[in-house]
Write a protein that binds this DNA or RNA. Structure first.
Length: 136
RNA sequence: UGUGCAAGCCGUCUUAUCGCUGUUUUACUGUAAUGGUAAGAGAGAGGAAAGUCCGGACAUCAUAGAGCGCUGUACUUCCUAACGGGAAGGGGGGCAAGUUUCAAGAUUUGUUUCACAGAAAGUGCCACAGAAAAGAUACCACCAGCUCGCCUCGGCGGGAAGGAAAGGGUGAAAAGGUGGGGUAAGAGCCCACCGUCUCGGUGGUGACAACGGGAGCAAGGUAAACCUUACAGGAUGAAAAAUCAAAUAGGUUCCGCCUUUUGUUCAAUCAAAAAUAGUGCUGCUCGCACUAAUGCGGAAUGGGUAGAUUGAUGGAGCCAACGGGUGACUGCUGGCCUAGAUAAAUGAUAAGAGUCCCGCCACGGCGGGUUACAGAACCCGGCUUACAGGCUUGCACUUUUU
RNA sequence: GCACUCGUAGUUCAACUGGAUAGAAUAUCAGAUUUCGGCUCUGAGGGUUGGAGGUUCGAAUCCUUUCGAGUGCA
């Protein structure tokens, strides 16, 4: 079983390596879906496939640490509760994702959750498109 | 009862579901190393965690000792690990009220405030205005005598050389102040009081205070201008620093391989010839040229990257009682363990309670809103700044009752 | 986490070692010129020098504190 199907968010699923983060920001593909900007990289993996996620809020938009923590926690919670359907549609690969919050104001949890769902759907489409182009 | 000021303290809670990070117990299972999974127990942001304005602890590097330089601090004594912090005291300034004096001023009380060493070591600066801005000056005005003119013969007006530092005006500031005497006019020129300086002993740990004697007064402001004096400080900060260390590349050391013949040498040390292998020229062969220990393989080893661990959470710790001290603080006894993350946990959703505000009315409920400032990043002591609301104590004013 | 720099008209910059009304260009407005507009010429307004407090006779300048903007360090 490659992915945990429970609604958890453990250390395995977090992106913690500085080098991968640097690579993600240098070479990663990206698209925007308000209120997020999403960066991702993918690598073909034989068996030990994984999905690593990081959530960031820019200091320029929110000066207070309390606000940044608040938004990041909401994003993480929304991802945690909605990742199972996302996982079920994935091919085995090493995927790294970064969610950047680009809105200028705080938003309700329901709004964030809806947008996270949309973002994950779009990400699947993007990945599928890349696979088809590669094979052709 | 209400309002204001000051000081100190607190700064939301409960339940359910789904999650996160440490600690610990048991079981299973891995990695080079740290670990991982499941179940149970128990813990999980602040008074400012903030600003990074100071001080320490700790670590590495530097360092014989001393001086110069640089930076900081600056009434006294004390507290403290230390401080630019705090406590108590001293002194100065402002405001209000009272007492006293002819006046200047002095003094008492209350309140408030002060980065409060030195301007009598030296240097610089003090715009404009003003005569003059620092051992100064004579613009107006003042003055007896001299001299010229006029006349009502005592005055008026002018001039030069002086006297003087009181009056006017300027300025933030004009070279002690007020009152009196004195004088041609004046002036500490003389006197009284006040101020200033200085000497003496007394009280106080000390800052300093009150008292007595002396000096006619010389010494404007500015040190948050340079500076002087005293005291303190080596530099850099957890991105400090220590330990373990996969894979790959490269370093060092050792071992093995390193064609044949001849000569030579301690030695594949050097030379020659031939052959072999590879590369280039060519479609191929011959031939020619170049290369063959600065190599290949293996082992060990040090540095060290990803990664991991330590540093890093039991401490100048918190609470209470009893002592010491005016107080900051401190002694002793007893009790307690109270976050430890690392691209970084402490959350999300739902329901309810509490706080405060608004509206309605049947005065007890209903409905709506509000719930601040703000998030640990090695730790500790301060300072500064932000903050819904609440509690306690003291003081002042106010309302009602007696 | 640590270290450092800068805040002046709407905008871009000046203002000497503290000295008086904070100056210039541009933008804005008004007038002149033009048939009209532009260019050009003349004039005017616009600043609590980021905020607060202090030193000084006097502060954009010196000191303290606070707010904002930015830079560097693996």
């Amino acid at each position: 079983m490659p992915y945990s199907l429970k609604a958890t968010f453990t250390k395995e699923e977090r992106l913690t390596s500085k080098t991968i983060i640097k690579e993600l920001f240098d070479k990663g593909s990206s698209f925007a879906l308000y209120p997020f900007k999403i960066l991702y990289t993918t690598k073909a993996a034989a068996e030990a496939s994984s999905v690593k996620v990081i959530f960031t809020v820019p200091k320029r938009a929110f000066k207070k640490a309390v606000d940044r923590n608040f938004i990041r926690r909401r994003m993480r919670e929304a991802y945690r509760l909605n990742k199972q359907s996302f996982y079920s549609q994935l091919l085995p690969q090493n995927l790294s994702i970064c969610f950047i919050y680009i809105a200028k104001e705080k938003n309700e949890y329901n709004f964030v959750e809806k947008k996270i769902k949309l973002a994950l759907q779009k990400l699947i489409l993007e990945l599928a498109k890349n696979n088809t182009t590669e094979t052709v």
